[in-house]
Structures are given as C-alpha cells and as structure tokens.
Amino acid sequence: MAEILAQVARIEGLAMITIRADLTRAGDALAEATGLPIPGPTGITTDGVRSLGWMSPDELLLILPQADKAQAMQSLDQALTGEHALVADMSDARAVFDVTGPRADDVIAKLAPVDLPRLAPGTLRRSRAAQTAAAFWRIPGGLRVIGFRSTADYLGLILSEAARPGTGLAPR
C-alpha cells in the first residue's frame, strides 16, 4: 500500500495581525515594529518565529505566536501613529494547516490553479483551494496553508483527501 502524499496537520496557537497602510510611507516604521524586513509584492519574510506576508499593495499580514500578540499590536499601533492605517487582530478568522512531506506540492497542485514548481521559497501565493480562499507558502519540509476558520473543516477535509495514498501526480 502506498504512502499518503503528505501529512496534513492543523496548527493552533498562531496569531495573525492584518496591517493596512501606505507601505511606501510607513514601510520603515513597520519594519522596525515587526522586526522583519517588508516583503516585496507576493513575498513573505520570516525570522523563524514571526512571518510578515505581502497580501496586497496596501496590506501586510503579520503571523506570530499567540503569546506575542498583545505587544505586537501595541508596537504596531505606535509605529503607525499619524498614518491613515489599520491594525486588526484577525487570529480568530483564520485556520492554519501544515502540509508536509516529499509530495506536499502534489496535494496543493490538485486544489489550487497555481504552478507549484514555480512557487519559490519566500513567496506567499493567495489563491483558492478548491472552492475556498486560501494562501500558502513554503516552509521547511512542505507548505503552510491558511484559510478562513469558517471553512476550516472543508479545507482540512480536501487537503487530507488530496493526500490519499496512491493519488500522486505524474510521474505515476
């Protein structure tokens, strides 16, 4: 019996903070407050614990351990004083899955209209997974997928379905 293509694990305990601001004006202040370099378009920067993803020309997503959230919200609010900006705690709106294994790409390739071989490390790709919005990027050993908590059951189900043994993509 063939192996499953990849392990699908729901990740808890991550906080997500949405930052909307004029990145050309507030970029330096944000880099200082988050402790991470501002990613370029469709990029994601990380120091191993925190990650900062580029969501749209005026939106960033800071992903960090739940324990650091309150302090990060405070320093972001301070950094954006005087700017037309928004810092919102989106942790409860999201669900996180790690798809890890040698054929993790196959699992995502079945669900999203994305050319996985061209997805470089450090790229955050917003797209869809089957019928629900999702974003994913490469982590050591596989990919991390974020979606909406309201569709988390569906997302978890389609990910583990797509990882079923013997369903790998070419070469068969």
């Binding site: 378009p41 469709t42 580029w54 749209s56 020309p57 209209p113 050319d115 790709r125 917003r126 797209s127 869809r128």
Partner: peptide, 12 residues
C-alpha cells in the same frame, strides 16, 4: 498589474 500574479479565470 498590482501583484504580478498570473491569475487564472477562476481566481478573477
């Protein structure tokens, strides 16, 4: 033109 992603019709 904003993010440079080659988006397929179902993403639009």
């Amino acid at each position: 033109p904003y993010c440079g992603v080659q988006a397929e019709e179902t993403e639009l």
